[in-house]
Amino acid sequence: MHPIVRTVIQRLLMGLFTLFVVSLIIFSSIELLPGDFGEAVLGQAATEETVTAFRRELGLDQPAYTRYFQWVAGVVQGDFGTSFSGRAASGIDRSRDVVDLIAPRLENTLFLAVMTALIAVPLALFLGITTALYRNTIYDRVVNAFTLTTIATPEFFVAYILILFFASLYQVFPSLANIEQSMSFGEKIYRSALPSLTLTLVIVAHMMRMTRAAIINLLASPYIEMARLKGVSSRRVILKHALPNAWAPIATVIAFNLAYLVVGVVVVEVVFVYPGIGQLMVDAVRTRDIPVVQACALFFAGTYIILNLVADIIGIITNPRLLHPR
C-alpha cells in the first residue's frame, strides 16, 4: 500500500476512535446524574409511578452498555431521544423530540458560522501573509497591536461594544439577531451582521497571528534563503518555494480557528439572542435538560474532531516525504 494511504487510514481510524471515546463520555453523563433527578425533572409533586415510568422510558432499568448501543444506534439514525422539558408531575408529556428542537437551530448556527468563515478566513490569511512579508513595518505593528487587544478581550465585550455603537448610538444594525425561517436571505444576513462581525473580529485576530507565525517560520528555512540566492523573484519564492510547504500549517490554522468559531458561537448567540444551537445548549444546561445537552455536545465535539481530522489529512497528503517515499 502506498504509505500515504496507510497514514491517512491510520489517521482516520484514530479520529473514529476519538469520536467513539467522546460519545462514550457524553453518553455516560446521564449515568452521573444524581439518583433523584427524576423528581427534579418532573417536579416535587411527581408520583412514584410517573417517576418509575420516566425512568423506564429512559431505559434506566437496563444495563448501561445496552443503553449505550441503543443510544448510538438512535444517534446514527438521527434520533437523539426526547427532551426533558415540557414534562409535568401529573404525567402529562408535552416534551418534544430533541431532533425537532435542534434541526432548525442547527441550520441557523451553520448559517452564522459559514457567513463568518467566508469573511474571516480570507481576511485572516491576507493579513497574516502580508504582515509576515512586511514584518516590523508600521502596518505590521498596527495590525499586531489591534489583534493582541482583540484576543485578550472576552467575546461578549466585543459584542456589546459593537451593539453600543452600531445598534444603540447609531442604529445601523439590529441588536437582536432573531432570524426566522421565513425571512429572505438578505434579511437574514442583515440581522446576523453584528454577531458575525463579533465572531470575525475574534477569529481573525487568532488566525492572523497564527498564519503570520507559520509564514515567518517557513520563510526562515534555509531552502527559502537558497531560492533567494538563486535570484528567484520574491513572488516566485512565495508561490513556488514557500506555498507548497505551507499547506499543512495553513490547514492547521484554519481548522483550529473554525473549531474555535464553533465554540465562540455559543457566547455570541446568547448575546444577540440568536436562535442557534449554542443558545439552545446554554438554556438546556440551565434547565438540566440532559438529552438536549448531549445532542449539542455531540454536535460541537464532532465538528471539532472532523475539522482537526481534515487539517491533519491535508498535512499528510501535501507532505513531499510521504508523497514520494524513498
Binding site: S221, P222, Y223, E225, M226, A227, R228, L229, K230, G231, V232, S233, K240, H241, P244, N245, P320, R321
Partner: peptide, 23 residues
C-alpha cells in the same frame, strides 16, 4: 537578483536543508 543564480551562485552548508523538499 539578475546576478544571483546566473553569475554568482551559492552552495550552502546543509544541502539537506537548502533543497526545497517539495520539488
Amino acid at each position: 537578483r539578475r546576478l544571483w543564480g546566473t553569475r554568482i551562485a551559492y552552495v550552502a552548508q546543509s544541502a539537506a536543508a537548502a533543497f526545497n523538499p517539495a520539488h
